[in-house]
Design a binder for these strands. Sequence first.
RNA 1: GCCGAAGUGGCGGAAUGGCAUACGCGCCGGUUUCAAAAACCGGUUCCCGCAAGGGAAUGGGGGUUCGAGUCCCCCCUUCGGCACCA
Length: 972
Amino acid sequence: MTGEYNPAAIREKWQAYWDQHKTFRTANPGDAGFDAARPKCYILDFFPYPSGAGLHVGHPEGYTATDILARYKRMKGFNVLHTMGWDAFGLPAEQHALETGQHPAVTTTNNINTFRRQLKMLGFSYDWDRELSTTDADYYKWTQWIFLQIYNSWFDDTQEKARPITELPIPADVKSRGEKAVREFVDSHRLAYLAEVPVNWCPALGTVLANEEVTNEGKSERGNHPVFKRPLKQWMLRITKYADRLADELEELHWPEAVKLMQRNWIGRSEGAQVRFKLDGHAEELEIFTTRPDTLFGATYMVLAPEHPLVAKITTPGQRSAVTAYCEAAINRSELARTAETKEKSGVFTGAYAINPVNNERIPVWVADYVLIGYGTGAIMAVPAHDERDFEFAMQFGLPIRCVVLPPDRSYIDANHTQQVGWSSRYDELRDAGAEYKEAKQQVYDEMFDVRLIKAFCDEGMAINSRPATLDRLLPSLNINGKKTPAAKDQVIRALERRGLGTRTINYKIRDWLFSRQRYWGEPFPILHGPDGEVVALDESELPLTLPEISDYHPTVTHEGNEEVPAPPLGRATEWVTVTRGGKSYRRELNTMPQWAGSCWYYLRFCDPKNAMRFVGKEAERYWMLSKKKDGTYHVGGIDLYLGGAEHAVLHLLYARFWHKVLYDLGHVSTIEPFGRLFNQGMIRAFAYRDSRGIPTGYEDIDFREDGAIHKATGEKLHASVEKMSKSLKNVINPEQVVNEYGADSLRLYEMFMGPLEASKPWNPRDVPGVFRFLQRVWRLLVDETTGGLSSYISANEPHPPVEESHGRPSGPPDALERLLHKTIKKVGEDIERLAFNTAISTMMEFVNEAYRAKSIRKDQAERFVLVLSAFAPFIAEELWQRVRGPAWKTSIAYEQWPAFDPKLVEDDEVEIPVQVNGKLAGRLVVSKSAPQDAVQTAAMGDPKVAEKLGGKPVVKAIYVPGRMLNLVVKG
RNA sequence: GCCGAAGUGGCGGAAUGGCAUACGCGCCGGUUUCAAAAACCGGUUCCCGCAAGGGAAUGGGGGUUCGAGUCCCCCCUUCGGCACCA
């Protein structure tokens, strides 16, 4: 190797070195070389789906950030667990198989090899011995095992936790009905259960689509073919039982508030009441859920979802044909199509009437598709005055709108039609007439307010018009007039409960998790179906249940009457499918698990990836997952940093938390949460250049001139905009190309230098040379380019301190550069801890600029600087370290100690401070930090510029922040 | 529509309530060179001015404060999430 900075040669040399020496192999408790005295740090990236396209510049953004932190923590003496693996089951490989016939396993292996090669180029300090793929039978054996744990559990509502199914108490009456009844009872309590659920069947593509693959018009995203809902038996996981814990236990986590909020919204806990309405002329009652029981007096009609079972029963003959037509149309429209059309409400009157339990009013019952069957009871009481949807519907169909909550401001009220809102004058009138304070107040509230609203008022306010007409007979305690919303709610609920008309209830938006896919490339379920519909789980000893080979990855189709009924492709593996046991013939479950399954627990397997006896060894799990807080108590979640894109803010993180909690309840893991600290990196976007017709142009066809981007061939000036990278916009940046041009260290540095990690930011190819230049400057500061020896900047006359003193502690006299180095070490360390890598890099740049200005740097200073740099740019740092240390030096820089700084050298005693007059800058002053205020003030007044600004007026007040600024306040 | 994040030079961005524009890109000038590139040194928010200097500016408007890019209220724009969840 010559003296010039040659990133490619350096990269190859050190990549091979790290591989050969297994530099980043991490020992587990009990392994040789494990040092129990060191604290642990588990730093994890969202592992990638190894797509055929290879690495994208978005991947190395997060991976570089975690790598810097991992390297820093290692140098700070931590045992660092930093790992990488592959979320390799999933759709694209299967689709590729459908198109080419190539086995998904082959595609997957190839893609993984590409990803691994590309990641290794970037110098990430992963322990590659822990690499895993969700598609390895050794791995998915345990995914299946966890499924069995879930299947073999039930949720004990009193203890609020999962327990083994064997501990489920069987009621005597169930027992008495025989074995089948017991089995059904048990099955209906399992955390994994079978249910009939509609799936998206696309006959033209011959496949079942995920909801995301279906357009709003109910067509397939690929090909625009029609998609039909077909009910299929599906595995469901009872995540709803964990709704409260999933919401409440977010509290303690060090996560972005936005993500916590998104999860809470997804869970959608809402408190309210279930209320039963009698139906006029029917024995059945209509049960509804409402979060605003205080508005019960404002209910002017009821609405049933089209799928509601009561619709058929209560519809009067006169309305029957209209209602039937409406319901059929609504049910056949996809859910997406139904919710997409938010513009106009639709609905039909059933002809039936319900009785409002609080005032005996007879109100019409409608059917409308704005009420969803899946939420609450699938029926509502409509309070148009205080619900926007009901308001809109009532306006459209001319239904009455009765205001029962007085809005605190007039913007809601139609002044032309409102007679009585001047209630304070009415109060005075009553008091003048001799009424007691309380009486007068109540009298005002009890008088009917004729308030006409111009829009729905949905916030809290004061209840009005809310008293039964005949107080005594119905609900004597139910006059809520004058009550504020929360108190009114509470009073209504308690009154309803006393009368047996309703109950306090909590509802959630979150649904049970649809856990099966009609796909080939996923984990097979360890489940057998018996001849009489009995479901049997495989024994743990029969795992893994491996995927059989099949030649055609399309689903199979059977016909039931005119209808096509799809079945998963695994049905083609006829030998695999049938299992004989105890003389009985069983069929294997043909569905496979969704891609989420494998990613739900990989962080646990990384703790102990080779364990053949358990999904993770107990000791390894405890060591890596239990994090102590500063106060000695344990953190609720074990992973010290989990970093990835915001696109997984809800589902992946929620599903993984759910599995983790089940495993915790069953005693398999030691923390209630998996990810103590979460961080989302921002998206990297890129400039796209379009011509006047809007057609994108690739960078290679553009001439970047000072006056703008010009199309090379046509000479047309192109319009630039920042967009998500995509093939069609021709703005995709390939990281491998950047590595070839500038080296891996430059790529890493640029990714971090672009801006704050969490911000979305544009990739600008013109900025990459900037960080490359910085690395070259570092190189030339230390290395003589012609000889390859140490540069002339490195002062030779200084004695070279012994190894153990040269880093890890300050040495040498505190000259200006030494002071700056201490500041740099402090600032970079702090910035790494708060993941502010962009400012850390600026700080290093400033140090190098200053060293050039000084034209000299001591060898020990150079060494300490290289240590700091090594977390960011490990290849160049290894090489420089070796060169500075001399040819005898043979070990990696990765386990050297992070240099220390002296707090005394970080603080300057002489500082320049601004002097302000009335808050405006008037001048600057160099002062000693310890100088008393009056000395500083006297010096400031002596400054001619300051004196001029003061204009001879007396200083009425002076604010001095020692060492920061002085502000002189004068009158006028 | 609702919820969340963000708006600072030509560009990416920096700034515990205390000198706005660090660092980098680009641009301008200088050194070096036969010349160019590279490298090194210096300059570069905008407006007026030859200059010294002066004025304005952190999306817009108001407020709190000795002092606001930062805190509070209203509005505008962009991005992200949810989308009839009663």
